[in-house]
């Protein structure tokens, strides 16, 4: 039962490799640069959102307001640029700031009023959706300018779509913060045992508030990328994506009770789900069957990880 600390990522890599071999044998179209790029591209948004959403999750909480937040911030950035005439750079920075502030508010309620994060962010998901409806007047709006803004989502660098770089940077930074900084240690400690963390000099409330703030900021980044990528904004633009993010986190080995997790694992998890869906498409299996397969995969991943958690807690209880 020891030396398990990093094995989830390695297991996932092995599964991914196996999946790739199987899919390339099943379909000649699979192992093409275009197809692979498409798969990774499709998980960009999940990757960006996971890089922040993992913090509340590791503290033992959850941020379910991601989807509404991304849609709302997409609408806001459009307002700033195309209705208020702001330059696209300050517009984006302001939007991220707004996302961070909403996250801060979520975190404050979770930490100080001690309400379960599930309820707090579920409420936020709902009222943020409402605010998005009001601000957008319930309409779907196309974004046709400015050009540099649209380049963020649709442009390419060295043949790869821009969002892939953005996601890679965010995931790398997030993984670095979690593994290599004092703050990351504190986040893990709060999730593993809040009281022990507090007695060891960690301020759990502060760590929680910062965690939700980060999640809010990455949700806003996700919202900006989504708006730029799809060139349109509307209140339901990212509806339900929080569940894809939670799926990626679970498959990636983030503990459902907090205390441990990995952004890289989450990204691998998201890619795995995308590969499976891609494979089903390539094999011409009709879309209604896809959720059955992905749901089963989530369950299997959970059972695998759960076994691991049991091993960790089982003997310890004595």
């Amino acid at each position: 039962m020891k030396h398990k600390a990093l094995s989830t990522e390695i297991k996932l890599l092995a599964v991914l490799a196996g999946l790739m071999v199987a899919l390339s044998l099943l379909s000649p179209r699979f192992l093409t640069i275009d197809n692979l790029t498409n798969v990774v591209w499709s998980v960009c948004l999940i990757g960006i959102l996971s890089s922040g959403a993992i913090y509340p999750r590791i503290t033992g909480g959850i941020d379910l307001s991601l989807g509404s937040m991304a849609a709302l911030t997409g609408i806001i950035v459009d307002r700033f640029m195309n209705h208020m005439g702001l330059h696209w750079i300050p517009a984006i920075l302001l939007t991220i700031l707004i996302g961070a502030l909403i996250g801060l508010f979520n975190g404050f309620i979770v930490a100080k009023i001690k309400v379960p994060a599930f309820v707090v962010t579920m409420a936020a998901k709902t009222y943020l959706y409402g605010i998005a409806l009001v601000v957008s007047q319930g309409a779907m709006m196309a974004i046709l300018k400015p050009r540099p803004f649209l380049e963020i989502g649709t442009g390419r660098l060295l043949g790869l779509p821009n969002p892939i770089y953005l996601m890679a940077v965010l995931v790398a930074v997030s993984q670095f913060v979690l593994r290599k900084t004092a703050f990351g240690r504190k986040v893990m400690a709060v999730g593993a045992n809040e009281t022990a963390a507090q007695l060891s000099g960690v301020d759990p409330d502060r760590i929680r508030i910062v965690s939700y703030t980060i999640s809010g900021a990455t949700s806003a980044i996700g919202g900006v990328v989504l708006a730029s990528l799809t060139q349109q904004v509307f209140a339901a633009a990212a509806s339900g994506i929080e569940l894809d993010v939670m799926t990626a986190l679970v498959i990636g080995g983030t503990s459902p009770v907090g205390g441990r997790g990995s952004v890289a694992g989450a990204l691998l998890g998201a890619i795995m789900v995308a590969f499976i869906i891609n494979g089903l498409n390539l094999m011409n299996i009709p879309a209604p069957y896809h959720p059955i397969v992905t749901g089963t995969v989530i369950l299997m991943a959970l059972l695998l990880n759960e076994g691991q958690f049991k091993g960790k807690f089982g003997r310890a209880a004595a």
């Binding site: 400690a189 593993a192 009281t195």
Partner: peptide, 16 residues
Amino acid sequence: RQGILPTQTIRTNIAI
């Protein structure tokens, strides 16, 4: 309840 981070390693516990 108050002393250890059970799901973490000895190293991480000493580090905190």
